Computed example of a mutant assay.
Amino acid sequence: MTSPFSTSTASAGTGPILTVRGELDVATAPQLRTRIGELTLEAGQLLVVDLEGVTFCDSSGISTLIAARNVAEAAEAKVALVAVPTRLTRTLALTGLADFFPTYPTAGDAISAHG
Rank of each mutant, 00 (worst) to 15 (best):
T14R: 11
S59N: 02
E23G: 13
K78I: 05
E38N: 15
I17H: 04
D109K: 03
G53T: 10
I62M: 10
A113D: 12
L41C: 06
T106A: 08
A80P: 02
F101A: 10
E42H: 15
L24Q: 08
L47M: 08
P4Q: 13
I17W: 03
A74P: 01
I36K: 05
F100P: 08
V26H: 15
D58R: 01
G61S: 03
R21H: 15
V79Q: 05
S11F: 02
R33A: 13
V49H: 00
S63L: 01
G15S: 07
V79F: 03
S8V: 02
V54N: 06
P16M: 07
G37R: 03
E76D: 10
T9W: 05
P85W: 00
I36V: 14
A74Q: 11
A67Y: 13
A83P: 07
S60I: 04
R87Y: 10
V49F: 01
R90Q: 11
D58A: 03
D25F: 06
L92H: 05
D50H: 13
I66P: 09
P102Q: 11
A27E: 12
D99W: 01
A75I: 01
S60D: 05
R35Q: 12
T91N: 01
T7P: 05
D25V: 06
V79S: 06
S59T: 00
V82I: 06
P4H: 13
A43N: 12
Q45K: 05
T7Q: 09
G37W: 00
G44Q: 03
P85K: 03
A27I: 09
D25T: 05
D25E: 11
L39E: 09
T89L: 15
T9A: 14
S3D: 12
L47V: 04
V48C: 09
A12W: 06
T89M: 14
V54W: 01
F5C: 06
M1V: 12
I62Q: 03
S63W: 00
A107T: 10
V84L: 11
T28G: 11
V49L: 03
T34N: 09
F101I: 03
G53P: 10
A110F: 03
T86D: 15
A43Y: 07
V82P: 04
Q31E: 14
T14L: 13
G37Y: 01
Q45S: 12
T40E: 15
R90T: 12
P30E: 13
T28L: 11
A29I: 00
S6T: 14
L51Y: 10
P30Y: 12
Q45W: 00
S11A: 14
S8Y: 01
A27Y: 14
A74I: 01
I62L: 12
R87M: 13
A98I: 15
F101N: 09
V26P: 05
A72D: 03
L92C: 09
D58C: 02
T103Q: 12
V82K: 08
A67M: 08
T34C: 02
I36R: 07
Q31F: 12
D58V: 00
P30K: 14
E73D: 13
V79I: 13
D25P: 06
G96D: 11
F56P: 01
D99K: 11
C57W: 00
L65M: 00
Y104I: 00
T64Q: 02
S8G: 13
S11K: 11
L88N: 09
S6P: 08
E23P: 09
R90A: 13
L41D: 04
A12E: 10
P4N: 11
S112V: 07
Y104R: 00
R33L: 06
R87C: 07
I111T: 07
Q45L: 04
P4E: 12
A27V: 13
F56R: 02
